[in-house]
């Protein structure tokens, strides 16, 4: 899945796609600025769409979550490559 991307000096990046429901509110609470971010992940709600560069089987590609509509997806995050666990 996803279209192949060329490897270059600029590190490919991705990120969220479309509007996100997260409301970032900035309030001035005395001298401290308090930022509230509403949690937007809930079971029964849509998974936020995103595009991300990917490596798979010798190829660099660009993957968008919404390409997988119609399939079950397990999305796993982890702290970092080579970090033991």
């Amino acid at each position: 899945m996803g279209k192949e991307i060329k490897a270059g000096c600029a590190r490919p990046t991705g990120g969220p796609v479309g509007k996100t429901d997260a409301k970032t509110e900035t309030k001035n609470d005395n001298q401290n600025t308090v930022r509230e971010v509403k949690a937007m992940i809930q079971v029964g709600k849509k998974a936020p769409d995103f595009i991300a560069p990917a490596y798979s089987k010798g190829k660099f590609t660009s993957v968008q979550l919404s390409e997988f509509l119609g399939k079950w997806v397990v999305l796993c995050f982890y702290p970092g490559d080579f970090t033991f666990v």
Partner: peptide, 20 residues
């Protein structure tokens, strides 16, 4: 820490999160 923690999401064919 500047890293993603071990989050795991099960997303159904409609793009809806069923578990995390």
């Amino acid at each position: 820490e500047g890293v993603n923690t071990r989050g795991r999401f099960i997303i159904d064919p409609d793009g809806v999160i069923q578990a995390f």
